[in-house]
Amino acid sequence: MANKTNINVLWDKIFKVSGLIVTLLGLVVLAVLLIDIFSEGFSRLSWDFITHYPSRHPERAGILSSLVGTIWVMAITAALAIPIGVMAAIYLEEYAKKSWLTNLIEINIANLAGVPSVIYGLLGLGVFVNFLALERSIIAGGATLALLALPIIIMSTREALRAVPPSIREASLALGASRWQTVSTMVLPAAIPGILTGVILSLSRAIGETAPLIVVGALTYIPFLPESPITGEFPFISLAGLKDPFSVLPIQIFNWVSRPQHGFIVNAAAAIIVLLTITFMMNAVAVWLRHKYQKKIRW
């Protein structure tokens, strides 16, 4: 008996130590990566680097077109994926009766979240670029990334909706509220922190995607910006830029890394810092929003 207890204590210790080592391993790799990139690229960061177009000369090259491209593409991705994903999740969780069909949909969505991103690129190429004839445009790229983000948004939104106690729905329905009134006034507000977290995480994944956009046909060298969405004339907003060709940061980085000159490697490191900063800021916003809404609601 005492022997057995000793063995259990030993196993406990072994697990604790090996767990610590594995955790540290991940952190160390990440730290090495960050240190390497920062030591290489930090000195290259400047306002000029952000406001210049790419160039044959590494010291003159900048990320302007790919940064603007990233912002455009992410805006389209968010505009398409968030409403569709959240609405689909609300339907599946709050309205759809459980049946073999909804089970099938559920399994498929979970599988879709694990499909390699290049497959989404091929889908985007087939559907948006060729079939819908959107060509190699921002809208085609944004729509492709929206497909990639959708399963994650749907799953995390459903998770957030499921976390709202059923007793709240019952209370609302028992007062004579319709389903939609219950969802819009009670369930959604309570689920917002979870939904936002999922949305931002899925967008942070999409922002770093290279493969699907290469397949869809993002350019690696682009010396001009899409048409500005803000115009001087009424109605002051133009979506013409959506049809323009584009590049994004990960592709610019990919392009620079594959060049032989050391100057471009430095540029790539600097661009990675910019991309990391954007991702980091998005995650920070997610944490902040989560915190802000969670304070309001305590079960």
Binding site: P165, I168, E170, A171, A177, T185, M186, A190, I297, R298
Partner: peptide, 27 residues
């Protein structure tokens, strides 16, 4: 609306006391 219900576990909405009572009228 005609047949109200009170449940086993108290289940107030995560809103103010006022809004809890007013909810049935607002909807």
């Amino acid at each position: 609306r005609k047949i109200g219900m009170v449940f086993q576990k108290p289940n107030p909405f995560p809103k103010s006391i006022y809004e809890n009572v007013a909810y049935g009228l607002r909807i």
